[in-house]
Amino acid sequence: MIALLRYQAALFLRSHRWLPPLLLYGGSMAVGVQSGQPVLDCAGWAAATLLPVTAWLVRVCVTNEPPAARDCTAAAAGPWRVHLAAVAVALGAALLLAVAGSGIVAAVGDPHTADRRAVVPMGSATAAGLVCAVACALLGTAVGALCNRPLLRSTAWAVPSTLLATVVVLFAGASPANAAVTGLVTGSRTGVVHVPLLPLAAAGALAAGAVATACALAARRT
Protein backbone atom coordinates (compact mmCIF):
# COMPACT_ATOMS: atom_id res chain seq x y z
CA MET A 1 0.00 0.00 0.00
CA ILE A 2 2.90 2.36 0.78
CA ALA A 3 4.40 1.69 -2.65
CA LEU A 4 1.01 2.30 -4.21
CA LEU A 5 0.61 5.61 -2.36
CA ARG A 6 4.06 6.71 -3.46
CA TYR A 7 3.27 5.77 -7.04
CA GLN A 8 -0.03 7.64 -7.03
CA ALA A 9 1.54 10.63 -5.32
CA ALA A 10 4.33 10.72 -7.91
CA LEU A 11 1.78 10.56 -10.72
CA PHE A 12 -0.24 13.32 -9.12
CA LEU A 13 2.70 15.65 -8.53
CA ARG A 14 4.37 15.10 -11.88
CA SER A 15 1.18 15.37 -13.89
CA HIS A 16 0.74 19.02 -12.85
CA ARG A 17 -2.97 18.47 -13.03
CA TRP A 18 -3.18 19.79 -9.47
CA LEU A 19 -2.50 23.26 -10.82
CA PRO A 20 -6.06 24.26 -11.85
CA PRO A 21 -7.68 23.30 -8.52
CA LEU A 22 -4.82 25.01 -6.72
CA LEU A 23 -5.43 28.16 -8.73
CA LEU A 24 -9.13 27.98 -7.87
CA TYR A 25 -8.22 27.73 -4.21
CA GLY A 26 -5.74 30.60 -4.45
CA GLY A 27 -8.18 32.80 -6.33
CA SER A 28 -10.98 32.17 -3.91
CA MET A 29 -8.71 32.80 -0.95
CA ALA A 30 -7.58 36.08 -2.50
CA VAL A 31 -11.19 37.17 -2.75
CA GLY A 32 -12.46 36.00 0.63
CA VAL A 33 -9.47 36.21 2.95
CA GLN A 34 -8.10 39.70 3.11
CA SER A 35 -6.04 41.50 5.66
CA GLY A 36 -8.06 43.04 8.46
CA GLN A 37 -11.19 40.98 7.99
CA PRO A 38 -12.64 39.07 10.96
CA VAL A 39 -10.68 35.85 11.43
CA LEU A 40 -13.69 33.55 11.80
CA ASP A 41 -15.32 34.84 8.62
CA CYS A 42 -12.06 34.24 6.80
CA ALA A 43 -11.78 30.73 8.26
CA GLY A 44 -15.32 29.91 7.19
CA TRP A 45 -14.65 31.14 3.66
CA ALA A 46 -11.38 29.20 3.41
CA ALA A 47 -13.05 25.99 4.58
CA ALA A 48 -16.01 26.34 2.22
CA THR A 49 -13.62 26.93 -0.69
CA LEU A 50 -11.76 23.76 0.11
CA LEU A 51 -14.80 21.56 -0.52
CA PRO A 52 -15.07 21.95 -4.31
CA VAL A 53 -11.27 22.09 -4.58
CA THR A 54 -11.00 18.73 -2.85
CA ALA A 55 -13.66 17.20 -5.06
CA TRP A 56 -11.65 18.39 -8.06
CA LEU A 57 -8.43 16.97 -6.62
CA VAL A 58 -10.13 13.60 -6.21
CA ARG A 59 -11.21 13.72 -9.83
CA VAL A 60 -7.64 14.51 -10.86
CA CYS A 61 -6.27 11.58 -8.88
CA VAL A 62 -8.75 8.90 -9.88
CA THR A 63 -8.55 9.76 -13.57
CA ASN A 64 -4.80 10.29 -13.63
CA GLU A 65 -3.71 6.85 -14.74
CA PRO A 66 -4.35 5.85 -18.36
CA PRO A 67 -6.52 2.71 -18.54
CA ALA A 68 -3.71 0.42 -19.72
CA ALA A 69 -1.47 1.46 -16.85
CA ARG A 70 -4.34 1.21 -14.41
CA ASP A 71 -5.00 -2.35 -15.50
CA CYS A 72 -1.39 -3.27 -14.79
CA THR A 73 -1.48 -1.67 -11.36
CA ALA A 74 -4.88 -3.16 -10.59
CA ALA A 75 -3.68 -6.67 -11.44
CA ALA A 76 -0.66 -6.23 -9.20
CA ALA A 77 -2.36 -4.66 -6.20
CA GLY A 78 -6.10 -5.11 -6.62
CA PRO A 79 -8.42 -2.49 -8.10
CA TRP A 80 -9.81 -1.30 -4.79
CA ARG A 81 -6.37 -0.63 -3.36
CA VAL A 82 -5.41 1.34 -6.46
CA HIS A 83 -8.56 3.40 -6.12
CA LEU A 84 -8.11 3.90 -2.39
CA ALA A 85 -4.53 5.07 -2.90
CA ALA A 86 -5.64 7.59 -5.51
CA VAL A 87 -8.36 9.02 -3.26
CA ALA A 88 -5.99 9.06 -0.29
CA VAL A 89 -3.44 11.09 -2.24
CA ALA A 90 -6.14 13.63 -3.12
CA LEU A 91 -7.28 13.83 0.49
CA GLY A 92 -3.68 14.25 1.60
CA ALA A 93 -3.24 17.15 -0.80
CA ALA A 94 -6.48 18.71 0.45
CA LEU A 95 -5.35 18.39 4.06
CA LEU A 96 -2.12 20.19 3.17
CA LEU A 97 -4.24 22.97 1.71
CA ALA A 98 -6.38 22.99 4.88
CA VAL A 99 -3.29 23.52 7.03
CA ALA A 100 -1.82 26.13 4.69
CA GLY A 101 -5.14 27.96 4.44
CA SER A 102 -5.55 28.00 8.22
CA GLY A 103 -2.04 29.42 8.50
CA ILE A 104 -2.88 32.18 6.03
CA VAL A 105 -6.13 32.97 7.85
CA ALA A 106 -4.29 33.17 11.18
CA ALA A 107 -1.67 35.44 9.64
CA VAL A 108 -3.97 37.97 8.00
CA GLY A 109 -7.26 37.67 9.92
CA ASP A 110 -8.35 40.28 12.42
CA PRO A 111 -8.93 38.67 15.88
CA HIS A 112 -12.20 40.50 16.48
CA THR A 113 -15.86 39.82 15.89
CA ALA A 114 -17.52 41.13 12.76
CA ASP A 115 -18.63 44.33 14.49
CA ARG A 116 -15.10 44.80 15.96
CA ARG A 117 -16.48 45.06 19.50
CA ALA A 118 -15.27 41.81 21.05
CA VAL A 119 -11.92 40.06 20.83
CA VAL A 120 -11.84 36.55 19.41
CA PRO A 121 -9.07 34.35 20.86
CA MET A 122 -6.72 33.64 17.94
CA GLY A 123 -5.66 30.15 19.04
CA SER A 124 -9.12 28.67 19.34
CA ALA A 125 -10.31 30.55 16.25
CA THR A 126 -7.51 28.97 14.22
CA ALA A 127 -8.25 25.55 15.69
CA ALA A 128 -11.93 25.91 14.85
CA GLY A 129 -11.03 27.03 11.32
CA LEU A 130 -8.71 24.06 10.82
CA VAL A 131 -11.27 21.55 12.06
CA CYS A 132 -13.89 23.09 9.80
CA ALA A 133 -11.49 22.95 6.84
CA VAL A 134 -10.71 19.29 7.51
CA ALA A 135 -14.44 18.51 7.67
CA CYS A 136 -14.92 20.25 4.31
CA ALA A 137 -11.95 18.35 2.83
CA LEU A 138 -13.52 15.08 3.96
CA LEU A 139 -16.87 15.99 2.46
CA GLY A 140 -15.17 17.11 -0.74
CA THR A 141 -13.51 13.70 -0.84
CA ALA A 142 -16.88 12.05 -0.44
CA VAL A 143 -18.34 14.12 -3.28
CA GLY A 144 -15.34 13.39 -5.50
CA ALA A 145 -15.43 9.68 -4.74
CA LEU A 146 -19.13 9.38 -5.56
CA CYS A 147 -19.16 11.63 -8.64
CA ASN A 148 -16.26 10.08 -10.55
CA ARG A 149 -15.02 6.73 -11.74
CA PRO A 150 -16.09 4.03 -11.02
CA LEU A 151 -19.61 5.32 -10.30
CA LEU A 152 -19.85 7.99 -12.96
CA ARG A 153 -17.48 7.27 -15.79
CA SER A 154 -18.24 9.87 -18.39
CA THR A 155 -17.05 13.44 -17.97
CA ALA A 156 -20.47 14.63 -19.11
CA TRP A 157 -21.99 13.17 -15.95
CA ALA A 158 -19.10 13.48 -13.56
CA VAL A 159 -18.38 17.20 -13.77
CA PRO A 160 -21.96 18.56 -13.51
CA SER A 161 -22.72 16.05 -10.77
CA THR A 162 -19.67 17.17 -8.83
CA LEU A 163 -20.74 20.81 -9.14
CA LEU A 164 -24.29 20.06 -8.10
CA ALA A 165 -23.22 17.87 -5.19
CA THR A 166 -20.80 20.54 -4.01
CA VAL A 167 -23.55 23.14 -3.93
CA VAL A 168 -25.91 20.79 -2.15
CA VAL A 169 -23.33 19.77 0.45
CA LEU A 170 -22.35 23.37 1.12
CA PHE A 171 -25.83 24.80 1.43
CA ALA A 172 -28.16 22.02 2.51
CA GLY A 173 -29.31 22.50 6.08
CA ALA A 174 -28.45 19.02 7.25
CA SER A 175 -24.95 18.99 5.83
CA PRO A 176 -22.00 18.85 8.26
CA ALA A 177 -20.14 21.33 6.07
CA ASN A 178 -22.99 23.78 6.31
CA ALA A 179 -23.15 23.28 10.09
CA ALA A 180 -19.41 23.82 10.52
CA VAL A 181 -19.17 26.91 8.32
CA THR A 182 -22.32 28.41 9.78
CA GLY A 183 -20.88 27.81 13.25
CA LEU A 184 -17.80 29.87 12.36
CA VAL A 185 -19.78 32.70 10.81
CA THR A 186 -22.16 32.79 13.78
CA GLY A 187 -19.14 32.79 16.08
CA SER A 188 -17.82 35.79 14.22
CA ARG A 189 -21.02 37.64 15.11
CA THR A 190 -21.31 36.54 18.72
CA GLY A 191 -17.65 36.20 19.61
CA VAL A 192 -18.11 32.64 20.86
CA VAL A 193 -15.69 30.24 19.17
CA HIS A 194 -17.15 26.82 18.64
CA VAL A 195 -14.87 24.03 17.45
CA PRO A 196 -17.04 21.94 15.08
CA LEU A 197 -16.08 18.47 16.28
CA LEU A 198 -19.47 16.90 15.66
CA PRO A 199 -19.58 17.99 12.00
CA LEU A 200 -16.01 16.70 11.68
CA ALA A 201 -17.05 13.27 12.93
CA ALA A 202 -20.08 13.23 10.63
CA ALA A 203 -17.93 14.29 7.67
CA GLY A 204 -15.43 11.55 8.47
CA ALA A 205 -18.15 8.92 8.54
CA LEU A 206 -19.66 10.13 5.27
CA ALA A 207 -16.27 10.22 3.57
CA ALA A 208 -15.45 6.72 4.78
CA GLY A 209 -18.75 5.41 3.47
CA ALA A 210 -18.39 7.12 0.11
CA VAL A 211 -14.80 6.00 -0.41
CA ALA A 212 -15.66 2.45 0.65
CA THR A 213 -18.48 2.39 -1.90
CA ALA A 214 -16.25 3.65 -4.67
CA CYS A 215 -13.45 1.20 -3.82
CA ALA A 216 -15.87 -1.71 -3.63
CA LEU A 217 -17.11 -0.87 -7.12
CA ALA A 218 -13.63 -0.31 -8.54
CA ALA A 219 -13.53 -3.86 -9.89
CA ARG A 220 -17.15 -3.89 -10.99
CA ARG A 221 -16.96 -1.38 -13.74
CA THR A 222 -13.96 -0.42 -15.68
Binding site: A10, L11, P66, A68, T73, A77
Partner: peptide, 20 residues
Protein backbone atom coordinates in the same frame (compact mmCIF):
# COMPACT_ATOMS: atom_id res chain seq x y z
CA UNK B 1 -1.26 -1.76 -26.07
CA UNK B 2 0.46 0.33 -23.50
CA UNK B 3 0.20 3.93 -24.65
CA UNK B 4 0.69 5.03 -21.08
CA UNK B 5 1.61 8.68 -21.16
CA UNK B 6 2.67 8.69 -17.56
CA UNK B 7 4.77 11.58 -16.33
CA UNK B 8 7.82 9.54 -15.43
CA UNK B 9 10.68 7.70 -17.06
CA UNK B 10 10.51 4.07 -18.08
CA UNK B 11 13.00 3.13 -15.38
CA UNK B 12 11.14 5.03 -12.67
CA UNK B 13 7.82 3.53 -13.72
CA UNK B 14 9.19 0.00 -13.65
CA UNK B 15 10.86 0.55 -10.30
CA UNK B 16 7.60 1.81 -8.82
CA UNK B 17 5.64 -1.06 -10.33
CA UNK B 18 8.25 -3.46 -8.99
CA UNK B 19 7.66 -2.05 -5.52
CA UNK B 20 3.93 -2.50 -5.98
Amino acid sequence: RFPAALPMTAGAYLTRLGRI
